[in-house]
């Protein structure tokens, strides 16, 4: 999922302080799971903002709504008939949702309510870690299912580097060396032969280096 983190309320207040009718818009998927932008977080933020503005003597209407997703037309359409009631929206979806909202409702300012961090997993409640950088050409088949692009600080494809100590990365002693993990895993799989194979230069044009990306699937297009 896409992992996001909450933005401080002070920052949100700064973004919206000149508006009078504001919709706080959550998303029911990734940001709900990482407890940054689901229905509950929408409720907490809306309640805090209502109290803040009332206490400031500012008359501001703050409403709450949470959509199934904010990265699909069909769900964003659900609020079309109420959008004229608002002069700003704070979207608690990831950056994808914020932008899709802004594209769809381009005369209403849409403000981000979370910081979008990475594609990752819930290791335990309250701890999320990165797993994938969406490089566009997955090499996990060769690396024992552990991604050096996202988990090796240097993104080495033929690692490890000389800096790994006791299985930890040199940039941070708490961080596992991705290549140590890969080697351990390949050993467990009895596939150490794979480790001996040199990975050729990766085609980075499918990654962000090639500019914004697009996937077109004619087979499923209508």
């Amino acid at each position: 999922m896409i992992v996001a983190d909450k933005k401080p309320i002070e920052e949100i207040i700064e973004e919206i302080k000149n508006h009078e009718k504001i919709l706080i818009l959550g998303c029911n998927e990734c940001v709900t799971v990482c407890e940054a932008g689901g229905k509950k977080e929408v409720g907490v933020m809306a309640s805090a903002l209502r109290m803040y503005f009332l206490n400031q003597g500012q008359e501001v209407k703050i409403d709450e709504k949470t959509l199934e997703r904010q990265c699909d037309h069909e769900y964003l359409e659900e609020i079309r008939d109420v959008m004229d009631q608002y002069d700003a929206v704070v979207s608690l979806a990831c950056g994808v949702g914020v932008q899709f909202m802004a594209e769809k409702y381009h005369t209403t300012p849409i403000y981000p309510g979370v910081n979008t961090c990475f594609l990752g997993v819930t290791e335990e409640r309250g701890v999320w870690t990165e797993r994938c950088q969406a490089c566009g050409e997955c090499i996990l088949a060769r690396t024992g299912g552990i991604c050096p692009v996202s988990r090796c600080a240097k993104r080495l494809l033929n690692g490890p580097c000389g800096g790994a100590t006791k299985g930890k990365c040199e940039i941070n002693k708490e961080l596992d060396c991705a290549w140590q993990l890969i080697i351990d895993r390949l050993k467990a799989l009895g596939k150490m032969d794979d480790y001996e194979k040199i990975t050729p230069i990766k085609d980075w044009s499918t990654e962000r280096a090639g500019g914004p990306r697009k996937v077109v699937r004619e087979d499923v297009q209508q």
């Binding site: 401080p8 309320i9 002070e10 805090a48 803040y52 206490n55 400031q56």
Partner: peptide, 8 residues
């Protein structure tokens, strides 16, 4: 924390 931030 929230109450401090919003002045309550």
């Amino acid at each position: 924390k929230i109450l401090d931030t919003i002045g309550i």
